[in-house]
Design a protein around this nucleic acid. Structure first.
Lengths: 245, 245
DNA sequence: TGTTGACTCTGACGTTGCGTAATAGTTTAG
DNA sequence: CTAAACTATTACGCAACGTCAGAGTCAACA
């Protein structure tokens, strides 16, 4: 059992922050002494590790709490996402360094601000949150799935996989073909019915995520064959382009 | 001349932020129309670039303003420091990635929080601020140097360089020797007299900065020969160790 | 046993860097 | 000439703590 002071020294988190985390229900101590002193055990420290990783990624504390308390939370999966996000951030810093070096050497006043662009990171972060508990979509999904049996769960996921397998069959054709577009429509309807309301915007976001080169891409390609994820992405882009404009 | 909207689109900075920057005097538009609309020119954009670089490094906006408005501000030097800080941050992210990978693979509950440690970055940041305008030390220095002539300036800097050259002469001896310790005392007195009050703590911070491997190290070594900066660092450490405990 | 010094608690208020209306004037395209 | 798109200025809100203030606790030493 460690006191706040000890935890603070070990982790670098201020005492005030620990008290605050306790207050907002993000990290409670294992127990309290009669005098009200906080005492932390190893489990609490482990949780703190998780919290700090998310904090490095600038997740709001509220989201962090929802995420690690979600019944769907899977630490390994979360770690994988965290690694991917950290890698994206690293790349961002590398871009900035390159940018700064460029100015320093040439002194060029190039009105280029692309190095400051964080869209990709933000999008990926958004999608990560959708997977866990910190989005309205997820909350809707949580409700819908409340009274699912193990069987219906499996049935739904099998159908889901089947959809991607179908995409895989036509992945070498034109993404704007009627069949492909119909499949996109099916996908949107399926998600809306079984998971959460899948607006065109949400669908567009999903498409990007599918092709982002992470775990999603791998999974989808494993169901439909290499290149399927990218094909789905393109088909969705075409679909949303038609719908939205 | 660009409107807020255009600047926002180009740079990714929100309109609200631009208005805010104007309000706090961090970034004013080149001019305003009769109706009060903000119009930015290229100079403003250039300044915005600087601001964004500092913002990426999490400098408070107030500090950023003081820094880029300091009469001592040198853009090239600032860029160099920014690059070094960005590199440090990148390394920090790499540590975190390594850490996360370690947990993921082994599942080990290692109560190791060193990857979250930002002390080095913070120290370097502090020192960077001391060089520019955002520290009490610097403000004191600014006052003292107000009525310096070019000659007295040169004299002071020559003496300063001489101090390091002296360190260089004994850099292969023991840092805790009386001579070395005396030199440290001289250095502290010199800084206090000519720049700003150099407490033991400040001195200790300087020592670290000297040996951090950046521009300072290079300069010092160029005056006293390779290894001088590290020697000074060690001598200061010994000196402060004695004084402070 | 008393006292000192280091720790800790709980409020309560302050701060930074904007987001988010609310309300109102401005400019531009058709 | 009107609607759509922009912009301005208050003003309030929020996250994640920092920073007192006032008060209780604990370990150790005298």
């Amino acid at each position: 059992m460690m006191t706040v002071h000890e935890v603070s020294k070990l982790t670098g988190v201020s005492i005030r922050a620990l008290q605050y985390y306790d207050k907002i229900g993000l990290l409670s101590p294992a127990e309290k002494t009669d005098a009200g002193y906080r005492l932390y055990d190893d489990a609490a420290l482990e949780r703190l590790q998780q919290i700090l990783l998310f904090r490095e990624l600038e997740f709001p504390l509220k989201d962090i709490r929802e995420i690690i308390e979600s019944p769907f939370f899977d630490r390994k999966k979360a770690l994988q996402q965290q690694i991917e996000l950290l890698t994206l951030k690293k790349k961002h810093l590398e871009d900035l360094i390159t940018f700064a070096r460029g100015i320093k050497l040439t002194g060029v006043k190039n009105m280029d601000f692309s190095a400051f662009d964080t869209k990709k990171i933000d999008e990926y972060t958004e999608n990560a949150k959708k997977q866990w508990g910190a989005s309205p979509e997820f909350k809707e999904f949580e409700k819908k799935s409340e009274n699912w049996t193990d069987e219906s769960k499996k049935a739904v996921y099998d159908s889901f996989i089947q959809l991607f397998a179908d995409f895989g069959k036509i992945k070498d054709s034109d993404p704007s073909s009627p069949e492909a577009q119909q499949k996109v429509k099916d996908l949107q309807a399926f998600i809306s019915k079984n998971f959460y309301k899948c607006s065109d915007e949400v669908l567009f976001g999903l498409g990007k995520m599918y092709a982002a080169g992470g775990e999603f891409t791998e999974n989808i390609d494993s169901y439909g064959g290499s290149g399927t994820a990218e094909f789905v992405h393109q088909a969705i882009t075409v679909y949303c382009g038609k719908q939205m404009k």
